[in-house]
Simulated assay, not measured.
Amino acid sequence: MSMDARFEDGGETPLNLGALDSDDLQVLSALVQDAVFPVTEMKWLATERRFALLLNRFRWEDVQAAEKRGRAVERVQSLLVVDNVERVASQGVDRSDKDMILSVLSVDFDGETDSAGQVTLTLAGDGAIRLSVEALEVTLKDVTRPYIAPSKHIPTHD
């Protein structure tokens, strides 16, 4: 009799995931919830039709292991990249304030199919970034080793 894999069986390897439909995007959204980034770490490459963020992502996938082993929770720097971007709009984001730190609450897709539509990054404090895409293609890749979360606490929401 075979047994399904358990969360505890996962390794301590960096994430490198992609989303090509709204179900996949929900997984990425859960993984980037509470990620923080300076406003200076987002870039739209219009000629490449790519929007990228360098995030300090809370490692939600590691919380159980950290608690079980009695060690601090962690963050990791990750790239969140959206391809096929035709337009970018934002609300509540002052790009001229180079000290502004933004926090991701969710990433959602609104479209009739998994092709053309809007990818919306909802930010804490009523901010949002809306990306008009020709086709849904989002990747999340950890690019550094994990580090102890400066707050040493699991993020909470009221």
Rank of each mutant, 00 (worst) to 15 (best):
E74Y: 04
D24C: 11
R49E: 15
S115D: 09
Q33A: 13
N16H: 12
K68C: 01
S22L: 03
Q91P: 02
V104W: 04
S96P: 11
D126F: 11
L80R: 07
A46Q: 14
V85R: 06
R49Y: 09
G125K: 10
S22Q: 12
Q33M: 06
S96A: 15
G11W: 00
L28V: 08
P155C: 02
L25Y: 00
G92M: 12
R6W: 00
T113L: 02
S29Q: 04
D83M: 13
S96E: 13
V36E: 15
S151N: 05
V76T: 11
G11N: 04
D4P: 08
A65L: 02
A52Y: 01
A5L: 07
K98R: 15
T156S: 13
L45R: 03
G70N: 01
V32G: 04
E61C: 05
G117L: 03
A65N: 03
Q118E: 04
P38T: 09
T144L: 05
V93W: 01
L80G: 03
D9G: 08
L20E: 15
A135V: 02
E12P: 01
D4W: 02
S22A: 13
V133Q: 01
L131Y: 12
E67H: 04
G70C: 00
H153M: 14
M42F: 08
S151G: 02
T47F: 05
S115T: 13
L25Q: 02
A35N: 10
N16L: 08
V76R: 07
L53W: 00
L31Y: 06
K98S: 14
V93K: 12
A46S: 13
N56S: 15
K43F: 02
V63G: 03
L102S: 13
A72H: 01
S132D: 08
D9Y: 11
I154D: 03
H153N: 14
A65E: 01
R95Q: 13
E112C: 00
K152H: 15
P155D: 00
Q26V: 12
F37D: 07
W60N: 05
V36Q: 15
S90K: 11
V36N: 09
S22R: 14
P14K: 01
I101M: 12
G127I: 07
D83H: 14
L15W: 04
R75C: 09
L102R: 09
P155I: 07
V143R: 10
R49Q: 15
A135R: 10
T156A: 07
S90C: 10
D83T: 03
L17F: 12
K152Q: 15
L140N: 11
S151K: 08
A35M: 02
E74C: 06
D108M: 06
S103D: 10
P150L: 04
D21L: 00
D126W: 06
S90T: 13
V81E: 12
L54C: 10
D158Q: 09
V119W: 01
L105R: 06
A35W: 09
D62N: 09
R75S: 09
P150S: 03
G111M: 06
K43C: 03
E67M: 07
K141E: 12
T113S: 12
D24V: 02
V107R: 01
L80T: 09
D97I: 10
N56F: 03
I148K: 15
R71L: 01
E67A: 05
A66Q: 05
E8W: 05
A135E: 15
Q64N: 05
V39M: 10
I129Q: 14
S132K: 10
D62F: 10
V63Y: 00
A52V: 09
D114L: 04
K68T: 11
D9I: 01
